[in-house]
Every structure is written in structure tokens, then in C-alpha cells.
Write a protein that binds this DNA or RNA. Structure first.
Length: 503
RNA sequence: GGUAUCGUGGCCGAGCGGUUAGGCACAGGUCUGCAAAACCUGCUACAGCGGUUCGAAUCCGCUCGAUACCUCCA
């Protein structure tokens, strides 16, 4: 698959329109995604965001692009409402060094990403590893006149920036600064230093007791939360790059301020396409720790949440995400998870069936049947779905349609001769590419069945049962089936013998 | 309170003015020793009320509800 063969369209949240994607440099894509703040276990909603971008990353790779995918780890500067650094707060709550907190939850994050089969980004920079660069950017913004120093802290001058660069600030989030001014006047807390409520910190002077501090020309302190992304995207992708992504909740103020910082430092816009993913809800309401409507990835995978009756595997979760478009709110319910589990298992079984289909090249006469055309149409439609703003729901629908064909062929409802061998081969390649390369699914059943001893024992048992069945010894046959069912193994009697799966 | 987005059949969800997306569940059938699986068939929905249009789930207005941001929870 060559890049030139397909036209990719992306909903650009900067313009609010769906645009044809053309990278800055042909064949190369630079993508920056805002990563997690590692002060706690990774949130399920974060899992959806990073899985969405993983699929975008995978599809770009599949199209033949060389992609540099940068996703940061925020380990300093993201303050809570009380003005305490999240990392420092985590450290205080868990009685740990801030870097211990960062390490613990970075490992947790990586483990969950691995379970979800998300590819690691090309570069995963940390905010604390880029303090000198952040100080440099603050200096550049100061030199260009868009920031001011107050008692050792440095703030971005939003009003001056807007006056001199109309149409930049507020474009992404649709914000009008006059309204922000009116709004924020009410809840000013400890922000007396700022000239204006809309201004935001580039560098914060440390207060007594602050744990994460560095020397700078202005004070001993720490960088503002938004600065790291401006700095690290510039460092690894250049002043202007292709795609910047993140959760929709980051649009304002984080991304808006990020753009202002980049523009303020270099006079140019950072990303050309902005992609924002939408929220994950639980039982029709937002996930909220305080209201108990909350579940961690670990609880989901182990079935230890009181909100669920059983465990659901990482691949079932991934399949669940695939059924919806990344920009839509997704509601998670137990019934929905059950449906996804069943659909996922069926998809994996059908693929296994497809891959084992014989291809009789001797009968190939070069013609194209009605079935051939129907199959090829669904394959193309799945690609078109992905081309249209990475619509995995559309692509998945066509894969399901194709599953029906696979079964009809496998069960001789469509004679094998009615489908051209090259179409069967194409279908096999297509399924492998979409299921594993693009959707990033893993066949969990294969892992479960990958035990040689179990495989051997099952083969023996099924052989004995087949012999009993040949003698119409239904007692023995059913005894074996019932006993295996009790062990969590389901038998499926087909025309070509019996197969088994774990429940 | 302000701003924005959304509200689709029993459930989850696609849909971007004019071919009943798809999955799960459910019902009937084929196959089968029985069951399961698989396959076939059925289930024509768009929050409410108005409007624009030959035609609206899709555009506009209002009402109600949800979510996000403004304000710490992703």
C-alpha cells in the first residue's frame, strides 16, 4: 500500500473542518500526542485516547508513511487547584520522592499500554529531562516581548499577544478572551501577580517546601505545565509539524496556551492538524472517582470492580473502542462489554477459519465472479472508512460483512470455485493487515491455547470422542463435552470435525 | 451562570439532504443424535415541538436532557 494510492482526510479541530491530509514532507509524518501526568494509575479514559492515537499511528504506518510519534510523560509542572504540583502532591500522599512517584506510575502506564497492545511511541520525552530547553524558550518569549517577570515568576502576556497576532489565540478552543476576562474575575485565587487573569505561568518561583525545583535566570522554581509540550514538540519535530493530538479536555487551556507559546517564541504555528479524542463514560455518566462511578484498567482486566460482574480482557476493551469513532463520546456498559467480547471472539475465530481456507489455484480461470466483486467492494469500503478520519466503526462493519462470506465459503454455501483464488489471498492479507497491523488486536485465544501439553491432551480427547460418536455412543460423547464445559472449554461440532475454544 | 458538542431501535454504536451501517440481544428456520457453533430470515429507529426543502436522523429555531471546557478529577 503506497501513500499516493489513498487520500486521507482528518477532522482538524483547529479549523473545525475535515481536511485532506498532506504531510509537510512527503512520506514523513511528525505526530505529537500529549501523554499522561504520572501521579496516579492511568485512567481508563486515557487508555481510550492513547489507543485512538495508536490506531492513527498504525494506519499511517500501514499507508507507508515514516512516522515520528512523540508522546511525552508529564512529571512536573501540572498543578492542582490548590497550586500544588501533582507530582509533589502524589509524593506527599504516598510518602515518596517525586521521582519515585513518576517512576511507579510510568511503569504502570507502560504496562497497561503493553496489555492494550499499543505500540510505543518513537520518542517518549519527559518534562524534567528538558528543563534547560524550557528555560531557553521562556527567554525567547521574553525577548520577543510576550512575557513579563514578576517576583521571580514569568507569565505569558495574553492580551499583548492577541493584540499583535490577531486570530491565533482562542481559535482552537473557540474562546473569546473578553469573555474569559469577565469569567475569571470572580475566582481569582493567589494570582495577584499576573497582570491579567488570562495570563499563564511560563516559570513559577518555588515556594518554601516545593520539592521539584531548578535554577533559572529568574528564580529557583519550576516550569509551567504547558511549556513542556511546546518545547519537546519543537525539539523533536521542528517548529512546525504535522499532527498534534490529545484528549478533548486539553483543548483549553493547555493546547491554546501551547500554541501561544510556540507562536510567541518563533512567530509560527506549531501543528498543522489538531486531533482531539472524546471522553469515555461509564453507564451513561462521566467517570468520577468522587461519585464512585469509576473503574481502573486493572479492575476491568481482573474483574475486581463492583460495577462489573466479570473480567474483560484488554483486547475486548480495544475492540470496544474500535466500534466507535474516536471523536464521539463513548459510553461503557456491561452489556456493551459483553457484546464486544462476543464479537471479538467471533472475529478472531472467523479469521482463523479464513487463514486456513485452501486456495485451489488450479481452478483459477482469470474471471471475476459476483462474489469476488462483493468481497473486493467491502475491502475497499473498509479502507475508505479508515481514510475518512480513521473511522474504525465503518471499517469494522465491513469486516463483519466479510466474516459472513468467510463462513459461507468455509461451509460450502458458496462453492470455493465461485471465489477467485487471488481474491481469497487478498482477503487473507486484508484481514491480517486490518485486525493485527491497523486495529492492533491480538488473538488472545492463541496465547491461551499455545500450551503443547494442553494441545496434545485436547487432540487425544477429541479423537476418543470422535471414535465414540462414530459408534453412536452418545453417553461418552456428551460426558466428555459436559466435563470439558465445566473446565471452561467449549466444543464446536462442525462438518469437518470438532474444534474447541476456551470460554 | 457562560461557551461548545451531543441526544439514533431492548443495549452499544455508524451516519455529514435522497441505497433499512455493523455488533450484541431477541424470534423463526437450515444443519445436527441432542446442545452449542455456523448460516439464512425477521426486528425500518432517529429526545420533544415548530420551520426550511420536492425530500431531513442529517439544515434552522425553541424546549428538555447529557457531556466537556471555563474551575481540581482524563
Amino acid at each position: 500500500m503506497k501513500t499516493a494510492q489513498r487520500t486521507l482526510r482528518i477532522s482538524n479541530t483547529l479549523s473545525g473542518k475535515k481536511e485532506i491530509f498532506t504531510p509537510l514532507h512527503e512520506g514523513l509524518v511528525g505526530m505529537y500526542v500529549c501523554g499522561p501526568t504520572v501521579y496516579n494509575n492511568v485512567h481508563l479514559g486515557n487508555c481510550r485516547t492513547f489507543t485512538s492515537f495508536d490506531i492513527i499511528y498504525r494506519y499511517l504506518l500501514h499507508l507507508g508513511y515514516r512516522v515520528r510519534y512523540v508522546r511525552n510523560i508529564t512529571d512536573v509542572g501540572h498543578l492542582t487547584d490548590d497550586g500544588e504540583d501533582r507530582m509533589a502532591q502524589g509524593a506527599r500522599l504516598h510518602k515518596l520522592e517525586p521521582m519515585e512517584v513518576a517512576q511507579r506510575y510510568t511503569l504502570d502506564f507502560h504496562e497497561v499500554m503493553r496489555m492494550l497492545n499499543n505500540l510505543p511511541p518513537s520518542i517518549e520525552p519527559r518534562a524534567t529531562g528538558h528543563i534547560p530547553e524550557q528555560i531557553e524558550m521562556v527567554q525567547r518569549i521574553l525577548e520577543r516581548g510576550y512575557a513579563y517577570e514578576r517576583n521571580g515568576s514569568v507569565y505569558f502576556n495574553v492580551r499583548k499577544f492577541i493584540a499583535e497576532n490577531p486570530g491565533i489565540y482562542g481559535r482552537l478552543s473557540g474562546r473569546v478572551v473578553e469573555e474569559l476576562i469577565a469569567e475569571s474575575r470572580e475566582n481569582l485565587k493567589g494570582q495577584e501577580e499576573k497582570d491579567h487573569p488570562a495570563d499563564f505561568a511560563l516559570w513559577m518561583k518555588a515556594r518554601p517546601g516545593d520539592l521539584m525545583i531548578w535554577k533559572s535566570p529568574w528564580s529557583v522554581g519550576f516550569p509551567g505545565w504547558h511549556l513542556e509540550c511546546s518545547v519537546m514538540s519543537t525539539k523533536y519535530l521542528g517548529q512546525t509539524f504535522d499532527i498534534h493530538g490529545g484528549g478533548g479536555d486539553l483543548k483549553f487551556p493547555h493546547h491554546e496556551n501551547e500554541i501561544a507559546q510556540n507562536y510567541g517564541a518563533c512567530g509560527c504555528s506549531p501543528a498543522r492538524y489538531w486531533i482531539h479524542t472524546n471522553m469515555l463514560q461509564l453507564n451513561g455518566a462521566k467517570m468520577s472517582k468522587s461519585e464512585g462511578n469509576f473503574i481502573t484498567p486493572e479492575q476491568l482486566f481482573t474483574g475486581t470492580s463492583s460495577l462489573l460482574s466479570k473480567a474483560y480482557s484488554p483486547m475486548v476493551l480495544r475492540y470496544y473502542f474500535l466500534q466507535a469513532h474516536y471523536a464521539s463520546v463513548l459510553d461503557m456498559t456491561e452489556e456493551g462489554l459483553r457484546a464486544a467480547e462476543k464479537a471479538y471472539n467471533k472475529m478472531m475465530e472467523t479469521n482463523q477459519l479464513l487463514q486456513s481456507l485452501p486456495v485451489n489455484t488450479a481452478t483459477y480461470d482469470g474471471s471475476e465472479s459476483a462474489h469476488d466483486r462483493a468481497i473486493l467492494r467491502h475491502i475497499e469500503a473498509a479502507y475508505e472508512g479508515m481514510d475518512d478520519d480513521f473511522n474504525t466503526a465503518i471499517a469494522l462493519a465491513h469486516l463483519n460483512e466479510l466474516c459472513s462470506y468467510v463462513h459461507k465459503i468455509a461451509h460450502r454455501q458458496i462453492p470455493l470455485d465461485d471465489v477467485s483464488p487471488w481474491v481469497i489471498e487478498r482477503l487473507k492479507t486484508f484481514f491480517r493487515a486490518f485486525l493485527f497491523d491497523i486495529f492492533g488486536l491480538r488473538d488472545e485465544r492463541q496465547h491461551a491455547n499455545g500450551n503443547h501439553l494442553v494441545e496434545g491432551l485436547m487432540a487425544l480427547i477429541l479423537d476418543i470422542r470422535a471414535a465414540a460418536r462414530a459408534q453412536k455412543d452418545w453417553n461418552t460423547s456428551d460426558k466428555i463435552r459436559d466435563a470439558l464445559a465445566a473446565l471452561g472449554i467449549a466444543l464446536k461440532d462442525g462438518k469437518d470435525g470438532t474444534t474447541w475454544t476456551r470460554l
